[in-house]
């Protein structure tokens, strides 16, 4: 099974276990931890902040959007246990010193997050021109694992190789890591590019992503969170759910809906439309995740 699903179908699917959406487009959705003393927890996904991007027709608040997002995350009623950034932290540049400056500024801004545990990973804008060397100086390894309250998180780097590949060495590392997991382990994969062929015509794919999916397929509870496509997308490869996040700089159109792969222009009537972040409630007893999407609020302009 390899199919695209809309929200209504997804809700139907998830009523028998899996993932549940809670849409919060008009404000903050009221999430609650329903089980009292459980291992349930929240984490926030932010993505594609492209710090350093300039283009007033796309985002006239390019220097303020990330700062607003940080403030909004800090104001969440349900505090996340940790935060993940799924790549393209900065806008690419050929100049190493400028790349460093952007990464330094980005790190200073997100240093204002109240949540002190923050996990980063690169996008191609951060890492593809120097195979992640500058990124590593600022943020550490580009692929790694961590465990949190019974969930095993695996970050996969599919961008340091400019061909958009994971590579055999990292796939072997993934295989070795998964060998330590049980078939029913709760596994979350964090990555930048879609692991499946979402729309190769726009380079929305990972060249050897199918190999990673094959390695993950024997595990019953696997969910993938990723970025790169600058919009929500929810897709199943077999029993594995893949959820992309919105950008915090420039929204992109639906795959193939426009002749060219170009950002959606800024809407003066609906500023920040298509931008936002996500709060994820991990419910370990149900083996499911509730996704809540948060917009950027106009009145929070910095």
């Amino acid at each position: 099974m390899n199919k695209e699903i809309d929200r209504r179908e997804f809700l139907k699917l998830t009523s028998i276990g899996g993932v549940v959406f809670i849409s919060g487009l008009s404000g903050q959705p009221a999430l609650s931890l329903p089980f009292g003393k459980t291992k349930d927890f929240f984490f926030v996904q932010l993505s594609d902040t492209h710090w350093g991007f300039e283009g007033a027709k796309i985002n006239p608040d390019a220097k303020g959007t990330l700062i607003k997002a940080v403030k909004e995350v800090n104001s969440l009623e349900q505090k996340p246990d940790f935060i993940v950034f799924t790549g393209d932290l900065t806008q690419t540049t050929d100049e190493t010193n400028l790349r460093k400056a952007r990464m330094k500024e980005f790190k200073q801004i997100v240093g204002e997050l109240d949540t002190k545990v923050v996990h980063f990973m690169p996008g191609e804008h951060d890492a593809s021109l120097d195979r992640g060397e500058t990124y590593k100086d600022f943020f550490g390894e580009t692929h790694y694992t961590f465990d949190h309250k019974g969930v095993h998180f695996i970050t996969i780097d599919n961008v340091s190789d400019p061909t958009g590949s994971i590579g055999e060495e990292q796939l072997e590392w993934l295989k070795t890591d998964l060998a330590q997991q049980k078939p029913d382990s709760n596994i979350v994969v964090l990555t930048h590019r879609p692991l499946f062929d979402l729309y190769p015509q726009w380079d929305w794919a990972t060249r050897d992503g199918a190999k990673a999916i094959d390695l993950l397929m024997p595990f019953q509870n696997v969910t993938v969170f990723y970025g790169h496509i600058h919009q929500e997308n929810h897709h199943m490869t077999g029993h594995i759910a893949h959820h992309s996040a919105k950008s915090l700089m420039l929204p992109m159109p639906l795959a193939g809906s426009t002749p060219k792969r170009q950002p959606i222009p800024w809407s003066t009537s609906e500023p920040y439309k298509g931008m936002g972040f996500r709060n994820v409630l991990s419910q370990s007893k149900l083996d499911q995740y509730q996704l809540s999407e948060y917009p950027i609020k106009e009145d929070a302009i910095v």
Partner: peptide, 17 residues
């Protein structure tokens, strides 16, 4: 049939097609 560059090459990469 559209073609494009699928090896990241910089700030204009997305428009190389």
């Amino acid at each position: 049939f559209d073609f494009f560059c699928d090896i990241f090459c910089g700030s204009g990469h997305e428009g190389m097609n």
